[in-house]
Design a protein around this nucleic acid. Sequence first.
DNA 1: ATCCGGCACGTTGTATACATTTTTGCCATA
DNA 2: TATGGCAAAAATGTATACAACGTGCCGGAT
Lengths: 253, 253
Amino acid sequence: MRATTIRLRRDASQTDRAILGMRDLVLRGEFKAGDRLTELALVETLGLSRTPIRAALQQLTQEGLLEAVQPTGYLVRGFSESEIFDAIEVRGTIEGLAARMAAERGVSQPTLRDMRDCLAKIDEVLTRSNLGDGQLARFGALNEQFHHLLLHASGSEMVKHAMSRVVTLPFASPNAFVLVQAKIPGSLEILKIAQAQHHDIVDALEERSSARAEPLLREHARNARKNLELVLRNTDALRHLVGAPLIRRRGGT
Amino acid sequence: MRATTIRLRRDASQTDRAILGMRDLVLRGEFKAGDRLTELALVETLGLSRTPIRAALQQLTQEGLLEAVQPTGYLVRGFSESEIFDAIEVRGTIEGLAARMAAERGVSQPTLRDMRDCLAKIDEVLTRSNLGDGQLARFGALNEQFHHLLLHASGSEMVKHAMSRVVTLPFASPNAFVLVQAKIPGSLEILKIAQAQHHDIVDALEERSSARAEPLLREHARNARKNLELVLRNTDALRHLVGAPLIRRRGGT
DNA sequence: ATCCGGCACGTTGTATACATTTTTGCCATA
DNA sequence: TATGGCAAAAATGTATACAACGTGCCGGAT
């Protein structure tokens, strides 16, 4: 390799760096949706050899960020608003399945306790009258934890696996729109509603009501659809949304 | 390369051959669940170089057939009965989502006609009093076509994409247990019930009843669960099930 | 006998040379 | 001007050499 090689690495392999670097480039919009990615260009940009680049291209394609085209090559994917809506709907459906299974099969007391604890911490965050970035980040971490606990409660590796695949798409994760809420007026109300749903969900699991739990999760996911709409109509918030450059707007970028 | 190189290829790349070859080896049970796969061993077995082997390992891992382990390496995955059940449940859930979307958004007349035509052909196959392998293969092809038409009717690329990921797992596809039905007594009845559900599904789509269409597809997928149980209790059928060596039985292979 | 260091080997990670395929752009021809 | 085809350039596909990393074995010291 050249003398330009960065030797700062702690433990990351070249392949990991290629994946992280390329994901970053794509999500930040360094490449536009529809752009063709060539290995050699990425070799130059990232300072890595073709082998890890190829592995990363394959990885990001399976994540859904890139698209393999025939006969050969990769494109940066773009996402229409309706595709993002559908991705969120798929996520809500899988989470609904997780909730149904959890309710049907029963959730262990320790797991229920973990969920209640998690919600208590979120309640505490939401008592503050206005949220700074730090509080929002804490909400995001706890929110993610709650959704992980739900998957754990489902007791199904297959459901976890299905969820992990759905969530690799930008905008599809339960946390996708949390961090930009600071830029949206009324965000506290939105988060309080989400948290009320969280409580209802645990109630449903506790009473083993799959018929309540499943639609609750579907509806819970639809918050993200509303948030997407808000963000799309708010230029300042859009600037802070990770992956925003990949969104294809009707009649424009 | 060695003189042993097979030059029969039409258009398959080495990478394609590695993927097909490895998938075949795994599904046929040449490697047992839990076996570690080393690149060099596969190089010897398949007569390819490490580069396409590595790509194939990555691909089969994302398909769910292999499992990447730390610090480094790949294992052949095994599937418990309950994992297969859950995989089928996930598939039914995604198909249910597809059906709901199709009903809500409305299915075009040409697509409805295609579905009706497809079902008419299946009806014809099922009028024969007993099914040979050829008839069963035809049923399988038409069944697959029907399920593809449903995805098409959903009008959602995201749902198609989610389904394509679910279906890569062995046993999860709508056709997984069709081809072994020849070995199971009463298979004609099973297929007739499935076909009755097909008709109900199209009826529901036609009247745009998402509330009917979604649960119909979930229940339809559960046929596969029943078939799995039948096959697991029938040694002869099990021998003809693709991927059977990967099934972990309680207290045995 | 046990613990520990270090060497040898097997495996994966990475870079790169070479082969093959695909794209591109030019030029001749209609 | 449109078109066909050919050659050059660029890209990907493939093989392989070498590096880095573990892991286990063996021998020596306590």
